[in-house]
Write a protein that binds this DNA or RNA. Structure first.
Lengths: 241, 241
DNA sequence: CGAAATCTTGAGTATAATCAAAAACGGTGG
DNA sequence: CCACCGTTTTTGATTATACTCAAGATTTCG
């Protein structure tokens, strides 16, 4: 696998880049920034002129309601381009912030759109990526709308572990789980207190161990079952599995 | 506005098609079918070789949980291409069905991908459309996760009326609301009984009138406020507003 | 006109929210 | 290395929103 998270991501999607495509991608001028935890990168309503690639650390997309409640709509890991949408849509409809200290690479929209126009295969791969993001949003609607806390939490963990494994950030049993209980609650649409009690139930059932930011899946089949987890919606390619 | 729903949709997004682009689009071979209400068009797990354009009537995208609960993730109206994703992703992760009797046009994926490759502007417009769909999913996550029934229901109505108006299917005050209370519940992740009580509250507050499938917005500002509705996420162009 | 679907109402229950406060943890600086 | 501070996690008690079950009224459609 390539060492650059973005290229690695393309590879996990089964895209064999030609030398020229690879060069075009790596030649895009980028600006790399190191960010602290809990820092906004862009905000709802912004009209950014660049998008970012997560190189290290974790990010969240979220929306605030007028009454001050927060809903997290996505967690992002290395290789993700959380705000790729802003290259095609003028105004941001969500905010993006860091979850942990993070390193991100900013790429100007013109650069992205030039590469897309020159290499339709890259445009198509990025389009495909945004379609997978959309598939994940759909699954989250189900998670938040029709699953009880226990199942929803198990589901979130399954998804996160699989995505981490796809990017070689987990061995499939153990990985970093960088979000606090409050953040998990904001992702599932439930309160922090209820997250805490639900976590205890998952532990009591012997499905997971969670100490600090370290998650260990003790019973993968059990967790999948409780989480009603079917990875189809992640649209993984064979070699990724 | 053009009489073909798909072309009209492109126009509402501000895309001025050249004669050649228009010809390429209209020359795509399509198969038009008339469907009854509550009929599946494609199902989760399918690997379709074509996508469809809604010409008349209404469709829903939904997912079922293993315990038999249904979550509707999108309502689709004339001009929408609900399963455009399947042109880029192999397996469907949601099911698509009619809500009412409907007329749809099927287009083979090869035809779509050829047009996209020949006209990058069309590819980009379709990409953009899928990004707007994703933005709507994000808003639905908020609706289902962080809004109480009253606010969520008002929000759904605001979104539906605006989308109908954009496609000239509503004057902005009155329009068809083709879903049953059970379907509204499946869209908001609440029970039918609770939808009923919530509807009564919206009526009691003088915000709407709803008789059969006919919705009249009596107090647009009030409904928007209760629904915490900000249309930014629909990414409408100026002329549409 | 009649059957099926949809809507409505009531009563009892469950899941999860809120409020409040204590315990544990993690990082920082002396 | 330890004490300290802010954050995060945990616990308890009370309340609220929404669910389930059940049955009756109304609408829709063939």
């Amino acid at each position: 696998m390539h060492e650059h998270p973005l290229i690695r991501k393309f590879q996990t999607q089964g895209l064999r880049l030609t030398d020229e495509e690879l060069r075009s991608l790596l030649d895009m001028p980028t600006q790399i920034e190191t960010l602290r935890a809990d820092q906004d990168i862009v905000r709802e309503g912004d009209r950014p002129t660049r998008s970012c690639v997560v190189l290290e650390g974790y990010a969240v997309m979220y929306k605030m309601t007028p009454t001050g409640k927060r809903q997290i709509v996505a967690f992002h890991i290395a290789g993700d381009i959380p705000d790729l949408q802003s290259a095609q849509l003028e105004v941001l409809d969500t905010s993006l912030g860091t979850l942990t200290p993070a390193k991100v690479a900013f790429i100007r929209h013109e650069a992205i759109n030039e590469v897309c126009e020159r290499h339709y295969r890259i445009a198509r791969a990025l389009w495909r990526q945004t379609l997978i993001d959309a598939a994940i949003f759909r699954e989250w609607v189900v998670n938040v709308g029709r699953r009880e806390a226990l199942n929803a939490l198990a589901h979130i963990m399954c998804e996160f572990v699989i995505r981490m494994r796809t990017m070689a950030l987990s061995d499939g049993e153990e990985c970093e789980l960088p979000m606090t209980q409050a953040e998990l609650g904001d992702a599932m649409g439930i309160s922090t207190v209820h997250v805490n009690r639900t976590l205890q139930e998952l532990r009591a059932r012997g499905l997971i161990r969670l100490q600090g930011a370290r998650l260990t899946v003790l019973d993968w089949e059990g967790l999948k079952e409780v989480g009603e987890f079917d990875p189809t919606y992640l649209h993984l390619q064979k070699q990724a599995a």
